[in-house]
């Protein structure tokens, strides 16, 4: 992300004296995702504690409909697979195929967000109604923010994988791999969220 070219830079500087390092940008990204995961872990912990010890006021509505979130889960899982396809295609230098898969992944992400918004508008409770409602919106909202960010990044790399002039090639896979990892991470969080929030 912020650090896309820095390691190359070092390698370049170091190459004068034959000091090369393996690519550690992925390593940095993984560390970042662990940190990001801890934010979610904090939210989950808060939610579970509330659920265990804070009874809701009588008459509070916290029944959730399952169809839309189930659809969303499927959307995200499929999008993980399509993203993977895009990577494979790029590796075989099939840029336009890769671009197609990426666009399709971004499309799935957008559908996910639309479904999410649709759910928000049809829920019987608002942000400040009760503790459950607030936590629900905070968790799904924070996750939705991640999906939005991810979709934007996918659109960017889809643009970059265009055949002429794109920076994304089979020699420069890192941006795609980074976004892919991020996307799988966001999916994983969604699955946990789905289980904890909707199924439990």
């Amino acid at each position: 992300m912020t650090t896309l070219d820095s390691s190359k830079e070092i390698q370049k500087n170091n190459s004068e004296v034959n000091e090369t390092h393996e690519d550690f940008r992925m390593f940095g990204l993984i560390t970042f995702l662990i940190a990001d995961g801890m934010t979610f872990a904090g939210f989950f912990a808060a939610y579970l504690t509330y659920k265990a010890v804070n009874p809701l006021p009588d008459g509070a509505i916290y029944e959730l409909e399952l169809p839309i979130p189930t659809l969303n889960t499927i959307l995200l899982l499929v999008s993980s697979a399509t993203f993977h396809k895009a990577g494979k295609a790029l590796l075989k230098d099939k840029n336009s195929e890769s671009q197609k898969w990426l666009s399709f992944t971004a499309f799935l992400g957008i559908i996910f967000l639309i479904c999410q918004l649709f759910e928000y508008f049809h829920l019987p409770f608002g942000l400040t109604d009760n503790l459950f409602a607030s936590t629900f919106y905070a968790l799904t909202g924070f996750h939705g923010l991640h999906v939005t960010l991810g979709t934007l990044m996918i659109l960017i790399i889809a643009w970059q994988s265009r055949i002429n002039g794109g920076r994304l090639t089979s020699q420069n896979m890192f941006p795609l791999e980074a976004v892919e990892l991020y996307w799988h991470f966001v999916d994983g969080i969604w699955v946990i969220l789905f289980i904890i929030l909707y199924l439990l």
Binding site: A35, M38, G42, A46, L131, S134, F142
Partner: peptide, 20 residues
């Protein structure tokens, strides 16, 4: 990151009138 999450929730309580 846990502190960050916590403070975000706290700021919701202050600005958006949630009740965490």
């Amino acid at each position: 990151p846990v502190l960050a999450g916590t403070l975000i929730l706290l700021s919701f309580d202050i600005i958006a009138n949630t009740g965490f």
